Computed example of a mutant assay.
Amino acid sequence: MVLAAGGDEQGVAFWDFTTGELISGTTFDGLYIAAVAALDGGDGSARFVTCSGVHWDGVMVWEPVVGSSPVELPESTVDTLGTGRFGGRSLVVAGTRECVTVWDVDTGERLASLYTEDDGEDTGDERIHAVAIAQQGMGLAILALTDSGSVRVWVLPSPRPVRTDRELAIERLKRARAGLPDVDEPDEEIEPIRDPFIGHEGAISTLAIAVVDDRPVAVTGGTVRVWDLADGRAVCAPLTGHRDSVRKVVTSTLGGRPVAVSAGDDRTVRVWDLAPQSHYRG
C-alpha cells in the first residue's frame, strides 16, 4: 500500500504505508499540489494523479517509483480530481475553471467535456469544487459541485473498449474524411440529466460516491445527505449529529458495509452506516 501527499508548500511525495519508508521525495521548488487521487490500474499497480490549481495547468499521472517521470494530460487550470475504472479503462475526471473533462489515462484520450449551466445560461467559468464518477446502468455518471453549491450530474455512454494505436489512426482518418470531430473531442455538447439536487439545508461544500445495494448514491455536505443517482431524490432524511457545517465527506467500507465519514467545523469526525434499510425509501 502506498500513500501520496503534497500541498501548498511542496510537490507530491510517496511513502510505503506499511513501513513508513519514503519511496520518492520532492523538492520545495516542485509543483504545488491542489489535489491528489489514487488511480486503479486494474492489475494491482499503484498510480496517482495530481493537479496544481493556479500554479500550473494540466494533470500529472505518477508511478511511485524512484526516478520515474510523470505523464502529462494537457488541460487548463485544474482544482479537483476524481478517478474510476470502467470497461478496462482507467479514467480521470478533472474539474477545471472552464468545465469538467473526462480522460482515459492510458491512451491520453479526452472522452468528454461537460459544461455547467444555471437557468439556461452558460456558467462554464464557474469554479468546480469537487468531482466524482460512478457507474450508472450501462453508462457513467459524472458529478460536479460548483461555486454556487449546485451538484450537476451527467450520464455518458460506457467508454468503448480500449483500441490499439492502429485502430485509433484508422478511426481518426475516417472521421476526418467525414468532417467529424477527432476521436478525443465530443460529437455534441452533453447536457446535465436533471436540475441540481434540491432540498439541502444550506450550501453544499463536499461530495462523494458510494454503492449501496448495487445502486450508486451521492453523499453530500454542509448537512450530510444521501441521494439516489437514478432519480436525483434524497433516499433518507438528513444524517444529523454535526453541530456545524460539514466540510469533507469520503466513502469507504467497514466490515463489508458501505460507510460515509464526515468532518465538520464542529471539530468532530463522524462515521455513518449507509447500509441499513431504514435509511432508504422502499
Score class of each variant (00 low, 15 high):
residue 132 A to Q: 03
residue 135 Q to Y: 01
residue 251 T to P: 05
residue 122 D to C: 06
residue 196 P to L: 03
residue 116 T to P: 08
residue 196 P to W: 04
residue 191 E to D: 15
residue 209 I to E: 11
residue 163 R to H: 05
residue 199 G to P: 13
residue 93 V to E: 11
residue 134 A to G: 14
residue 36 V to Y: 11
residue 149 G to V: 09
residue 265 D to V: 02
residue 171 E to A: 07
residue 79 D to N: 07
residue 209 I to A: 08
residue 3 L to H: 05
residue 137 G to K: 05
residue 133 I to F: 07
residue 113 S to M: 14
residue 215 R to T: 11
residue 198 I to D: 14
residue 94 A to D: 00
residue 58 G to D: 07
residue 84 G to C: 01
residue 22 L to R: 14
residue 190 I to P: 07
residue 32 Y to R: 15
residue 263 A to W: 01
residue 231 D to M: 01
residue 239 L to N: 04
residue 264 G to L: 05
residue 90 S to W: 00
residue 53 G to L: 11
residue 106 D to I: 04
residue 153 V to R: 12
residue 180 L to D: 08
residue 260 A to P: 04
residue 281 R to Y: 02
residue 109 E to D: 07
residue 68 S to I: 04
residue 36 V to A: 09
residue 99 C to L: 04
residue 18 T to V: 14
residue 57 D to A: 03
residue 281 R to G: 08
residue 24 S to H: 13
residue 250 V to W: 06
residue 216 P to D: 00
residue 270 R to K: 11
residue 140 L to G: 02
residue 205 S to E: 06
residue 263 A to D: 01
residue 192 P to E: 01
residue 161 P to R: 13
residue 125 D to W: 07
residue 12 V to N: 00
residue 280 Y to S: 07
residue 177 R to Y: 10
residue 116 T to W: 06
residue 78 V to T: 09
residue 124 G to K: 07
residue 56 W to R: 15
residue 69 S to G: 11
residue 160 R to C: 02
residue 164 T to N: 05
residue 166 R to Y: 04
residue 206 T to G: 13
residue 49 V to I: 08
residue 201 E to P: 04
residue 281 R to M: 02
residue 74 P to R: 15
residue 146 T to S: 15
residue 172 R to E: 13
residue 257 R to K: 15
residue 236 C to P: 12
residue 61 V to G: 06
residue 136 Q to Y: 00
residue 38 A to C: 06
residue 3 L to T: 13
residue 278 S to F: 14
residue 245 S to A: 06
residue 18 T to M: 12
residue 68 S to R: 12
residue 80 T to N: 05
residue 151 V to C: 04
residue 227 W to S: 03
residue 48 F to N: 06
residue 108 G to C: 06
residue 187 D to C: 09
residue 274 L to E: 04
residue 119 D to L: 00
